[in-house]
Design a protein around this nucleic acid. Structure first.
Lengths: 295, 295
DNA sequence: GGACAGATTTTTCTGTATAAGAAACATCGG
DNA sequence: CCGATGTTTCTTATACAGAAAAATCTGTCC
């Protein structure tokens, strides 16, 4: 049966949304809520019904208003708001990166399903999508093999990444001065500076900034295959940052410095300077990843 | 329930294999057959049982021999030998490339399932894998959108293809003379020449040769992401060749000529000549594909 | 008549069931 | 003891079912 994580997450969001309203204030229309919560009106109605059942909303039809009781309601636990697919992704990445799964391990759908507490369907779906990330291989009628998060993987990944990024960075540098991307990259530079100032406390915020920075560069000359490739990078780095705590602050501080140099290079519009800065950053990113691979 | 297409295909293969044996000759061992037919021994035993039931094999255990009746047996219809997933792929590619599906069309799992005569599970599995090919996009909880086999797609595809192929071709040209790839490419050159001689009759054999040629070049410096990208190319071209019959003979004849020039360039080991020949071929391949896109 | 809510229809998501096929284990003949 | 066959166990491929969520249709009120 389908899970109701969409409902639960939206319910929690609705709760904080409703908390901001005054006592007795009319509830926004179902369509407004639907747009605001990012779910269909059907789900909105289910949320309204649930809120009404618990006395957080009074009235019916077009005459609904929020009641005082709304602030006392308990949201659903966060664990119940994550979809099966997200859960599988999390657990699988954890198994792979944190538990340092061995190259050559065969992956058993049924066993993973039991281990993760989901049905085999969810596992299969994940593995099928994940296949294109180059870390697992399908043996038709005979399961999957984990190829290993190895040095070879990191090297192949970075060979492509360098090709793509140099191409995009160059395209970026050649953008006309009128392009709105120039303003965006300046804004991103400021974000880097703010983060750097507070690096001791906020160093784990770098992962997200990193992803946004590289995607912005790619957007100078969009290509769906490059975007798709960045999905791999983003996924790997997201989980890698999350679990590899060794020297994290220093690593991120250094990377911010490289980004800033890279941004300055872009702003200079000088392609050869851009190339140097880009290469420098990618090389150090590669070293970092290599250090945490299995052989 | 699982289909028995593996059994049926292997049974048909076994039939032609057995036809080559003399009357009364002993049947090869189960392990030998297993290797020869590319299926497990379980399936081989099922095939032997079926053949025995129809009198094509006499004796049992270690004393099995082929009987005269073997030549009169009917193979299973070809349609029953293709797996659900292969069937879905076929039908979907047909829908996309031959029926010229409109960009922006929403894809309905249930409707496709009915249309293709399979369960929704099969459709979902295909779509999930196919997603990484850049032609469809998932809207969680709300189906899929077909992005269109458009000129933009072809251009983005060829931008990457050119990057990858130039890199691989250069690596190929720099291979030491001792590399066995030199002998392989010479063999491939000969295949091209043979095909060219008989082009009027065998022009549709080019698709396979094309794929093998480009994959050989990539193998000079293997990279899993490039291999994965070539899966896209191979799939698109396989079906494209299959259905776009316009000028097929001339197109393939011209492409063979380009390949031969490209191979000569590689054999010369001169990187700049290689680059020129590679670019020339890719440009003409791009033109061909562009001509058949939807807008 | 246009935004809104109520009711209904579709469609996706995800669990379960089961045959086909692979793989591991056991046995036997020479 | 080795290679073959017989037997058992385990895993994947695929159909099917039921609930959640989305989409659509319908009526109504300002």
């Amino acid at each position: 049966m389908k899970t109701d994580t969409v409902f639960k997450r939206a319910f929690n969001d609705a709760l904080s949304l409703v908390a901001k309203l005054e006592d007795g204030e009319p509830l926004p229309s179902e369509n407004t809520l639907s747009a605001g919560l990012g779910v269909s009106r059907t789900t909105v109605r289910k949320i309204i019904a649930a809120l009404a059942a618990q006395g957080a909303i009074t009235g019916a039809g077009r005459r609904r208003a929020v009641a005082a009781a709304r602030t006392k309601l308990r949201p659903f636990p966060a664990a119940e708001t994550v979809s099966t697919s997200a859960q599988v992704e999390n657990r699988f990445m954890e198994w792979m990166l944190r538990d340092n799964a061995r190259p050559g391990t065969t992956i058993n759908e049924l066993e993973l399903a039991r281990q993760f507490g989901v049905a085999t369907t969810g596992i299969r779906e994940f593995l099928n999508r994940f296949q294109s990330f180059g870390l697992i291989e399908k043996r038709p009628n005979a399961g999957w093999v984990f190829k290993g998060f190895t040095a070879r993987f990191a090297l192949e990944l970075f060979e492509i990444r360098e090709m793509f990024e140099l191409r995009s960075a160059e395209a970026f540098a050649r953008l006309p001065d009128s392009s709105k991307l120039w303003r965006q990259i300046e804004a991103l530079r400021d974000e880097h500076i703010v983060l750097l100032r507070d690096i001791d406390r906020r160093y784990h915020d770098f992962s997200d900034l990193d992803s946004r920075f590289h995607r912005l560069i790619n957007s100078a000359a969009p290509n769906r295959f490059i975007d798709g490739f960045y999905d791999i990078i983003t996924l790997i780095f997201h989980y890698h940052y999350q679990w590899n705590k060794h020297d994290e602050r220093q690593r991120n501080e250094a990377a911010i410095g490289e980004h800033l140099a890279y941004i300055e290079a872009l702003l200079s519009r000088d392609v050869s300077i851009v190339e140097t800065a880009c290469r420098a950053h990618l090389t150090s990113a590669k070293e970092t990843l290599l250090r945490s691979t299995a052989g």
